[in-house]
Amino acid sequence: MTLPAFDYHRAASVAEAVAMLVEQGEGARLLAGGHSLLPLMRRRRSRPRLLIDLGGLAELAGIDDGGDHLHIGALTRHHDVATSPLVAAEAPLLARAASLVGDPQVRNRGTIGGSLAHADPAADLAAAALALDATVVITGPGGERHSAVGGLFGAPHRTTLAATEVLTAIRVPKRGGAPWSYQRFSRRAQDWPTVAVAAVGDPAAPRVALAAMAAVPWRARAVEEALAGGASAEAAATLADEGCDPPSDLAASADYRRHLARILTRRALEEAS
């Protein structure tokens, strides 16, 4: 299906983009790589009047060492996250998840900020960012604020960002030494995950996140609490779908997703221990 009509503006700075969002209100949307937004627009599930293109803002792309964390600009592409030696050393789970998004062409265009702001409950990078306890950096008319990534997701394809805010970066605590796992199931190579499980085996605070099991990317807190209470990986994994409301769709029934979540969580906990 062809794209609906819209107008286009190439932003010269984040401040200008924020000012335009203030002026345009809900009718404007930000464009990064376009690999989430343009397909939604083709399906008429998003009908912005104006796209504000952040693509020319080089200051929003790149991966920097922030001391105890990695600072990853919102426009950093999946390919760059997947192949960064810094990410491989300090947040290998994120590199792994980025390497599995879409296909090589998609990874050459899609961005980490765009993926998180798309707020798809099945997103690989959202599950990885949740398990890594990442923070997002947000710029709005009142300046900059930080939010735990879990607070970003409101509903399928809806963030909690105000219409005037721009997600500018993601900060990922360095977890280079912690065991981790990313378990992903899909029927076809380029599909979104039917279910995926991201786990970081931090002994003090194990973290487990699920993709495609709820209306938002989901922290499996029942699993985490069971592990913290001394449960085995096998026992904790049986709680993986607790509190979840997985969808039934062409890829899988809700019951099958619950089954997958428990199996993949067990595998993830065994690998990340």
Partner: peptide, 17 residues
């Protein structure tokens, strides 16, 4: 696009400027 494979149905012409 700038030497990297991309899918041209999901790149706007204005993005290739």
């Amino acid at each position: 696009l700038d030497g990297e494979a991309v899918k041209a149905c999901t790149v706007l012409a204005v993005q290739a400027h």
